[in-house]
């Protein structure tokens, strides 16, 4: 089943990019070694994908049904878009890329379940908002607990240990939530069972984390650290909870947008402007632009192949 290579490529790219949202802070501020973060990330991503990844697969299956070749084209179009946009430094979400491609594939094959698509889009918008609310709810109670540690080094150690625990939880949530992006199209095409697809997808994401996420962690993590370690801790926790909730709902969402929402929540709580207009524009571009590109790319590819008489 060579077509699965597109999913593995997308999974690898997702792991390389998104691990920074959960372990970037800890690695960039030299709290844990990259190797430790990568191993923990890989383990928890596979665990999350295996234990809770199937729900997202079902949501994607409900978007539409199509052939294995169509699944390949959709996944490959998403992978190409994600890689190209990352290369250009543009905001990109794997979840939003694959949905655009799957809708295009669905249009050609059978039908598109607009109800399911509406649910998915609502969850995209709900991601930064949810993360903002969660970070606002968590910030003070967790801070009060940490304040009760009575000495300088103890408090530092507690925050560091929590960063690793919450990071691991974030990796679990990332695996559970995002694995459907990687192999969901193949479940929708009927060639893979959700559980198997979740495991294979989880391994692909984990490989991306282990092999290629260091540089992104140093860039993204450095940016988050600029907040302060405690706020970064809250951001990781809020992001993990948000993404986990959507994993249970069964809708893959963007971890990067959850991070932006969580930072915004802390900004609101502290009365400072932490997210400017251009950041919001980048989020909206992610919601609209990314799925539009993959939609057009998939549509164009299938159209050309059909015109050439190649059946997909």
């Amino acid at each position: 089943m060579w077509q699965l290579s597109a999913g593995l490529f997308l999974g690898w790219s997702l792991g390389a990019n998104d691990a920074a949202n959960v372990f970037g802070t800890a690695v960039a501020s030299r709290i844990i070694r990259f190797r430790t973060a990568a191993v923990l990330g890989a383990i928890f991503i596979i665990a999350g994908a295996y234990l809770e990844g199937a729900a997202g697969m079902e949501t994607y299956s409900s978007l539409g049904h199509y052939s294995l070749n169509m699944a390949f084209i959709a996944t490959f179009a998403a992978a190409l878009t994600v890689t190209f946009m990352t290369y250009l430094g543009l905001p990109v979400s794997t979840s939003q890329a694959i949905v655009g491609a799957m809708v295009a594939a669905g249009l050609f094959s059978s039908h598109v379940n607009w109800g399911s698509l509406g649910k998915v889009a609502a969850c995209w918008v709900g991601t930064p908002i949810g993360a903002a609310i969660i970070s606002m709810l968590v910030y003070r109670p967790l801070g009060a607990l940490i304040n009760r540690v009575g000495f300088f080094f103890g408090r530092d150690r507690l925050i560091m240990i929590l960063l690793v625990i919450f990071g691991s939880y974030g990796a679990y949530a990332l695996g559970a939530n995002n694995v459907a992006n990687v192999t969901g199209a193949f479940v929708a095409s009927g060639v893979m069972a959700p559980q198997l697809a979740a495991t294979v997808g989880g391994i692909a994401i984990a490989l991306g984390v282990v092999s290629y996420s260091y540089k992104v962690m140093m860039t993204v993590g450095g940016g988050i650290v600029a907040l302060d370690s405690y706020s970064a801790l809250v951001v990781v926790l809020a992001e993990a909870i948000t993404v986990h909730i959507y994993a249970m709902v069964g809708v893959p969402v963007s971890t990067s947008q959850a991070v932006v929402g969580a930072v915004l929540g802390i900004g609101i709580l502290k009365g400072v402007q932490s997210v400017n207009g251009s950041t919001l524009l980048r989020i909206v571009l992610g919601w609209v632009g990314t799925p539009l590109i993959t939609f057009i790319l998939t549509l164009g590819t299938v159209y050309v192949l059909k015109t050439m008489g190649i059946g997909v």
Binding site: R30, I32, F152, F153, I159, M160, V225, D228, S229
Partner: peptide, 8 residues
Amino acid sequence: GRALLPES
């Protein structure tokens, strides 16, 4: 080393 938070 890795003993403290950056701000500490």
